[in-house]
Amino acid sequence: MHTLQDPQFGDKMVTLMAALVLVLQIAMVAQRWIVTNIRLFAAQSFLLAFIAFTIAYFNHAPHIYAAAVATLLAKGILVPIVLERLVARIEIRQEIEPILNMPLSIVISGGLTLVGYVLAEPFYRPDEAPGASTLGHNALAVAISLFLIGFFMMINRRKALTQVLALLCLENGLFLAAISLTYGMPLIVELGVLFDVLVAVMVLGILVYRIRESFESMDVSRMRRLRG
């Protein structure tokens, strides 16, 4: 059998890329510069798109191709550009100051990955033949981990913009879960989610700008002043 039709090869590729996605996610936790963070996110989205391509190829599911292309364009290219412009425009301090210190944050993310693997364990069925049907079961664990770490990043970061970034990572996790578990939601749902994310980025972009205008800072903890 040719390598490119060997489902085991596909499985390895998906697993490898999923692991890379995870590494990028933890790199984002460890990275202090906002711009680098955005670029890491872009790289992550690219990898996700490739995972989607691989799954589409080995499962012969054409609609996943569409989802892959959409992800590539929207989250790999469009969102990063928008965010980078935003960063340039509002001239914030470029360094992220997490609430917990860096090594601790990194180790916590590692712990959350462990939780992700535990949660994904019931979906792992080793008795089934390694073929298309078990493709990327590791990816599910990674997806749950992405979701959890994304959530943790939202809690751990002060500035609204970095929280948007965390939300996007969280959404990447959802996407990965969807394609690895069900080989893609119906295309329309996929597109809807993507559109949602885009709108969210736009709205948050404007909001961030506003928050900065009125509070002279993006530190959302200052918004406590809003309560009555």
């Binding site: 860096m102 090594p103 180790v107 990955t113 693997y117 994904a120």
Partner: peptide
């Protein structure tokens, strides 16, 4: 004092490697 960040990253990567053998 930023070097611990890098080494914590290495530790976490290694731990992830270990965890991912967990499923295989």
């Amino acid at each position: 004092f930023r070097v611990p960040d890098l080494l914590a990253m290495a530790f976490t990567l290694a731990a992830l490697g270990l965890v991912s053998t967990f499923l295989f």
